[in-house]
């Protein structure tokens, strides 16, 4: 059974477990979007990035698809991880600013502005609905078509599918369909109303120091130092 070290904690898991599951078992929080319990891992949103290995050889991998190996060292909230995650959220936000899930993630990560052109799409291509339809509902009515910037999720020939039973599972799992709350700013903007401005330990140290949320937002150690 593989034993690995996540954020300095040793954990032994069943073979075949992913790093994400191992971290969740320890109660560590890793933000995810395309991952969903009961569906095959997909690795599309890149939000669940973690740093594996140590020193110069460390690299970023998606924890939802990375198998837990024996002797692996994982850091779920290093500076590098947080920087990359922030970028991912910013990119997602530029695609789909009307999604509450993504706006919430932006607030959590401290993303305050989007430097990319906003597209105002209503889909982030996380593929949750596709997997839901295929794996849980056993229908396979929707899927990805085209490729590159034209890629989208739809039914064959853009017509009502014969195998769709209109169960609504696809809408139920969609992280982009829940509309953002009505803030004072325009719908395309970053809302940021839930933004926490408290300094966090990750601003001072390379890793977070307590296990209270993915960005070290308890802030206790910072206060301690200041007093």
């Amino acid at each position: 059974m593989p034993t690995l070290k996540i954020d300095g904690l040793d954990v032994t898991v069943e073979p075949g477990t992913t790093v994400l599951e191992a971290a969740q078992f320890l109660g560590l929080e890793i933000p995810t979007l395309c991952h969903m319990d009961g569906l095959e891992p997909y690795g599309g949103c890149r939000l669940c990035l973690v740093e594996v290995g140590s020193g110069d050889k460390s690299r970023l991998v998606t924890s939802c698809t990375y198998p837990a190996e024996d002797g692996l060292t994982v850091r779920t909230n290093s500076k590098r991880v947080l920087r990359s995650r922030k970028m991912m959220v910013e990119l997602l936000l530029s695609v789909c600013p009307s999604s509450r899930t993504i706006q919430d993630l932006a607030s959590l990560m401290g993303v305050q502005k989007v430097r990319f052109k906003t597209r105002n799409d209503d889909c982030i291509l996380c593929g949750r609905c596709v997997r839901m339809c295929k794996e849980q509902m056993d229908a396979g009515a929707i899927g990805f078509v085209n490729r590159g910037h034209k890629r989208k999720i739809t039914t064959p020939f853009n017509m009502k599918s014969e195998v769709c039973r209109t169960c609504g599972g696809c809408i139920y799992v969609c992280p982009a369909c829940n509309l953002r709350c009505q803030g004072p700013n325009a719908p395309g903007d970053v809302c940021g109303s839930c933004l926490s401005l408290q300094p966090t330990c990750t601003e001072r140290f390379d890793d977070y120091m307590c296990y209270l949320g993915p960005t070290g937002n308890c802030g206790t150690c910072i206060k301690k130092e200041e007093n």
Binding site: K134, G140, A141, G143, V145, N146, F157, V163
Partner: peptide, 25 residues
């Protein structure tokens, strides 16, 4: 032709969307 993709999906028991996805990819 659309018909042929539909028949193909039946023959091979592959969901039509999969074949359509490949054909558009």
């Amino acid at each position: 032709p659309e018909e042929s993709l539909r028949s193909l999906s039946n023959e091979l028991s592959v969901p039509l969307i999969k074949i359509y996805g490949i054909a558009t990819f």
